[in-house]
Write a protein that binds this DNA or RNA. Structure first.
Lengths: 146, 146
DNA sequence: TGACACACGTTATAGCATAACGCAATTGAT
DNA sequence: ATCAATTGCGTTATGCTATAACGTGTGTCA
């Protein structure tokens, strides 16, 4: 009873723990730390951080969740449709950038092809082989800056 | 005997602890965590993490050191000349990007005006007020990828 | 049916960062 | 001169983030 359960919907089938973690992130309106997720899931039988981290690892691998490095926290991917952001099947739309409001916590996810292109060009020129690129802008969102 | 000591050279005078921490980072050829720095400075009287973090806070403020968010580690700024990277006096050359080799640990610091421009344009369009931007590319440097 | 892969659960530990206290030294206004 | 404000320092304790190492159960497939 531990294997992934196939669903009628999108990409890879999630296990119970993976679904629970994803649902928590998907309902949240701000990034959550692994330990905050853990606390939200105590009622569902979660007892230890590893249960969360293991689910997060898979969700990251599937491209359904992003890690915000500057926050040590996680968000559900903002483009649930179409297998999202690149890692999943090799396609997707390149590196994703995040704008993080330090007041309300809201995160906007966006992509800029030209930025990708410039960073890629630098890498090529330097013979650097990129594996993962992080772009995070911290500041104040329109609503909070007003 | 705790105040900054003026030096004939560059920007803001550093206190003893700040100098010690900066020197360790400056001599390192890879990013260092605060605790690694602490261990390196035990012989100089450092006993607690806060001594390191407090020095790092100031060095970050002066723009002499960068924090690598994806590593929870620190590097000396690669452009020691000309007050470096933006924070110090308000000028500098915008957001700095880092290419981090996951094999040898080497970090390259660079700047791309067009990337700045594109991210700035997105922010402007969305009414987002950027405070600090992080760009980190993890991968393999030319030497290690060969 | 046995080797394998994978998800899971648990305990323990490692690694990163800050809160809260009090003291010492410098600055600068009065 | 002297007092208040500021800043750096040292110490202890604590909190948050992440992984190591072990063992169990289950489904797959040769």
């Amino acid at each position: 009873m531990n294997a992934p359960v196939s669903t009628p919907t999108s990409a890879p089938a999630l296990t119970k723990n993976q679904s629970l973690v994803f649902d928590v992130l998907d309902r949240a309106d701000a990034p959550m730390s692994a330990y905050t997720i853990l606390d939200r899931l105590r009622d569902h039988g979660f007892r230890a951080p590893l249960q969360v981290y293991r689910a997060l690892d898979k969700l990251l691998e599937f491209g359904m969740v992003h890690r915000l490095e500057s926050l040590n926290a996680f968000v559900a991917c903002a483009h649930p449709e179409s297998e999202c952001c690149g890692k999943g099947h090799g396609h997707g739309h390149g590196t994703v950038a995040f704008a993080i409001c330090e007041s309300c916590g809201h995160v906007s996810e966006f992509h800029d092809h030209e930025v990708d292109h410039r960073l890629g060009a630098w890498a090529k020129a330097k013979n650097f082989k990129p594996a993962k690129t992080t772009i995070e802008i911290r500041g104040l969102c329109g609503a909070c800056a007003a």
